[in-house]
């Protein structure tokens, strides 16, 4: 009995979750939405996602192997997840090389520049989307029509693009002449949008609408979100407050339950609420912080959708709230066990 024994500090037992397992499970939770995007947008969705992931993986490997000369940590799944999330928030019509650049830039500028995993302030997938939107605004606002045969790569054939519901809604509301004629015929802007795009409430849920690659299938995203909730990788706090704020806010602004529902089910809200605003690295660490963060994301989304120039505001709302995370963390420190709030602080010399 004199062989060498392993000596470590406790705890000697450990919960089964690892960082890699969390990252891969979040990626797994995106699979239903990915299948929907393949159904709605065809092979281009696959090409864009693949190129986005390859770009992210290339960025991660380049920095770690060449610049840092450190072990490459692709196996932890975080770069793959960033690539997938980036691809999910861009149009399926995006040229393949743009998607690659998006993933690449997201990892390098959005993550590795800050020091790598766990250090970045902003959601790298959304940084990538913001970079692409600023660099190639036309590509980034060319939306594939659901079910259109657009080939795998190369230029888009004619007649395969369409507006997003939120985009068309914004245009409609900005066009006084159109609004007058709609009012004369007793049609609401919502009915007009649905009619023009030949969609209904069902399409908003299933995802057969124009929009970013992975954001349209609300039911599939909800399924993934439920999986994350059950696996406890996310809690209800952020998604519930973000979705709730957008729904109730739209209701207050428009006084129209249908419009509130339309705003809840449109754009990237579900993707943002379940997968982006819950990113552990770039969001607050406490439950109270999550509530504040979710509310902020919802409120800024509303502000951009109703008052801003863009039809959709989920991406920027989350990026803006990312910047407030240190502040939120600072003000949501839990009261310590047995802490007596000192009546008079000691004066420090």
């Amino acid at each position: 009995m004199s062989e060498k024994l392993l000596v470590t500090v406790g705890p000697h037992h450990h919960a089964p979750d690892t960082v890699a397992r969390i990252m891969w499970e979040v990626t797994l939770a995106l699979v239903p939405a990915f299948l929907i995007s393949l159904y709605v947008f065809g092979g281009r969705a696959f090409v864009v996602t693949l190129c986005g992931v390859l770009g992210a993986v290339a960025g991660e490997a380049l920095v770690q192997a060449v610049f840092q000369k450190k072990p490459v940590t692709l196996a932890d799944g975080s770069a793959v997840l960033t690539g997938v999330l980036m691809a999910f928030s861009v149009p399926a019509a995006l040229p393949w090389w743009t998607a690659f650049l998006g993933g690449f830039a997201g990892i390098i500028l959005g993550k590795q520049c800050f020091g790598g995993l766990g250090q970045n302030i902003f959601n790298p997938a959304h940084i990538a989307r913001a970079i692409l939107l600023a660099s190639w605004p036309v590509y980034m606002t060319t939306w594939l029509k659901p079910g259109a045969a657009a080939g795998l790569i190369g230029p888009l054939p004619d007649g395969v693009t369409a507006a997003t519901p939120l985009g068309l809604m914004k245009e409609t509301l900005r066009n006084p002449d159109l609004l007058n004629s709609l009012a004369a015929s007793g049609t609401t802007a919502l009915q007009h949008t649905f009619h023009e795009l030949q969609i209904g409430w069902g399409s908003l849920l299933t995802g057969t609408i124009g929009g970013s690659l992975g954001e349209t299938g609300k039911l599939a995203l909800l399924l993934g979100g439920l999986f994350l909730l059950i696996r406890r990788h996310i809690t209800w706090h952020t998604p519930a407050t973000m979705l709730g704020t957008v729904f109730l806010g739209s209701l207050l602004i428009t006084r129209d339950p249908q419009m509130a529902l339309f705003h809840l089910l449109s754009g990237g809200l579900f993707l943002g609420a379940f997968f982006m605003a819950t990113d552990m690295v770039t969001t607050p660490m406490t439950k109270v912080g999550h509530l504040i963060f979710g509310f902020g994301c919802g409120a800024i989304t509303l502000l951009i959708r109703f008052k801003g120039g863009y039809p959709e505001g989920v991406c920027y709302s989350i990026l803006i709230m990312n910047a407030f995370v240190p502040l939120i963390d600072k003000f949501t420190v839990p009261r310590r066990f047995g802490e007596v709030r000192a009546p008079a602080q000691e004066v420090k010399a």
Binding site: V19, L117, M285
Partner: peptide, 27 residues
């Protein structure tokens, strides 16, 4: 039972804060 696990990187998941019985901020 005694397998060693490799330390990786903090991803600010907040689980330590939730678990701390003294309500400290371990991270």
């Amino acid at each position: 039972e005694g397998a060693l696990r490799v330390a990786t990187t903090c991803i600010r998941c907040g689980r330590c804060i939730e678990a701390c019985p003294m309500r400290l901020l371990p991270q």
